[in-house]
Design a protein around this nucleic acid. Structure first.
Length: 491
DNA sequence: ATGTAC
């Protein structure tokens, strides 16, 4: 008989949509799962709450360790995890950990609105056109070739550098998280990562990445939907992609570098250099003000800028396709663009005290209140929170609070969350059958690799509507509008 | 997620 996971004896309901794991063992803080009894019981894998519990022992952690409603198993940290550390903790600051951000640095979602009504488009034809014009799949084929100086401009300037290079529109910038720009002073991105970035800009990638045309099929919050420029029957476009091989390379190198400072000590991993101890080697972290910590943070931001530019370049390709079909570009505007794999320095009030902290969001979306200075009064009803579901069901737009911050360091879920592992999904789903089933539902899908389709099948994901409901009940973000897919491009 | 193994 396998031993029961210790956290199971420390669970207690903590209001609607929240289950608290009280501090026990090596935890420095409590942990909170956005979940309820029925949602909990649908999870047969105990490993991700164990991962969440492990993160609560990161040096310098503040508040609680959170798992958003779409939590599932990840590298060290659970996906859906939100962990904040005090940047002024100890001699060199609290933890910064590459595992708390993920391999696809600044993977994120962009939602675009159009002037088109669903009755004006031919989704099957557009799926075909998009599949020919949007570079997708694991290769870099079709990406924008960049010289080293151009690539460095992107790493320094993010989405605005994409505008300068003619790969994006200036009017899009104010509708991107952090205006599409993260501060990277040194851009210490190795030559391998530079090479991988030299021809992958403007490519979708593989796995759960996609470009999708959708139709707004439900409005829950009329006022916010109107403010976001959304209405029933309208065609929208959603792009889910990240920093491609460049970000992956940056993460791999820094994971290796930081992990190399840890060695086994009893049942945990210890860094002599920093006096840090973590229960899992994959949680390896460096003090944020150490040279390793600063170097990772700076390179992570550079890779994050690449991801903003990548989603910008993909938007431009989408505009070209629409321009070919209609006289103009379909009136395509960016509603918002969010990151769901990033660590950011933010000010928060924790148990009544102000704290500058490094908020790690790994598979979690920022959800700022409408009065936050960054939104500069453009979203008075709360920051748009973009939640892609699965390709056979729907995606959602939510909104952060009207005022102030939510309890999870202003964070929300980032998707439906995986129910089946990639391998389990591949074993149980026939991709040909899936294509015809989706076609019958009016969803036209084009994929570079059939295997990806099985991995991404609707049954591989949790019910997105349930995840949205939990997030709402937990008081993190409120649902605004639901979009149903009609044309889907996969890698 | 990923030049899905250097």
């Amino acid at each position: 008989m396998p031993m029961e996971a210790p956290w199971k004896r420390h669970l207690k309901p903590d209001g609607p949509g929240r289950i608290r794991i009280s501090k026990h063992g090596r935890m420095l803080t409590d942990a909170i799962l956005v979940s309820d009894e029925s949602h909990m019981s649908s999870h047969t894998d105990d490993r991700s709450p164990t991962q969440l519990v492990n993160t609560a022992s990161l040096p310098g952690i503040v508040g609680e360790a959170w798992a958003m409603a779409d939590w599932h198993f990840g590298y060290g940290f659970p996906i859906g995890g939100v962990v904040a550390t005090d940047v002024d903790w100890g001699e060199q600051g609290g933890s910064i950990s590459p595992g708390g951000v993920g391999f696809d640095i600044n993977c994120g979602v962009r939602l675009c609105s159009t002037d088109l009504h669903i009755s004006q488009i031919d989704p099957k034809h557009l799926a075909e056109e998009l599949s020919m014009k949007i570079p997708a799949g694991a290769s870099r084929k079709g990406g924008v070739p960049l010289g080293n100086s151009e690539l460095d401009e992107i790493l320094a300037g993010g989405a605005s550098a994409a505008v300068d290079l003619g790969l994006a529109e200036a009017r899009d910038l104010s509708c991107i998280e952090s205006n599409g720009l993260l501060n990277s002073e040194n851009r210490e991105v190795g030559h391998k990562a530079m090479k991988r970035g030299s021809s992958s800009l403007g490519t979708l990638g593989s796995g759960n990445h996609f470009m999708e045309l959708q139709v707004v099929d439900r409005i829950v919050d009329e006022e916010a939907a109107k403010a976001f420029g959304l209405r029933i029957g309208q065609v929208t476009a959603m792009i889910h992609s990240g920093s491609r091989g460049l970000g992956h390379q940056v993460c791999s190198e820094h994971v290796a570098n930081i992990e190399s400072n840890y060695s086994r000590r009893g049942d945990s991993w210890f860094s002599e250099k920093w006096g840090f101890s973590v229960p899992d080697r994959q949680l390896a972290s460096a003090p944020i003000h150490s040279s390793e910590g600063e170097s990772y943070f700076d390179a992570m931001n550079a890779a994050g800028n690449f991801a903003f530019a990548n989603r910008s370049a993909l938007t431009q390709r989408l505009r070209e396709v629409l321009r070919n079909e209609y006289s103009v570009d379909g009136g395509l505007d960016v509603v918002y663009d969010v990151s769901h794999n990033i660590a950011k320095i933010e000010n928060h009030v924790i148990h009544g005290k102000n704290c500058t902290c490094a908020v790690h969001r790994k598979g979690a979306t920022r959800a700022l209140g409408g009065d936050h200075p960054e939104l500069s009064s453009s979203f008075p009803l709360g920051q748009p929170v973009l939640v892609p579901g699965d390709m056979g069901t729907a995606s959602w737009v939510m909104a952060g609070p009207v005022n102030g911050a939510n309890d999870a360091f202003s964070s929300s879920c980032h998707g439906a969350g995986r129910r089946l592992s990639r391998t389990a999904a591949k074993a149980s789903v026939d991709s040909e059958l899936l294509i015809s089933e989706l076609e019958e539902k009016g969803i036209h899908i084009r994929a570079k690799t059939p295997n990806v389709l099985s991995e991404e099948a609707p049954e591989a994901y949790k019910d997105v509507d349930e995840v949205i409901g939990l997030t709402n009940r937990a008081g993190l973000a409120r649902p605004v509008a639901r979009m149903r897919p009609v044309s889907v491009i996969k890698g």
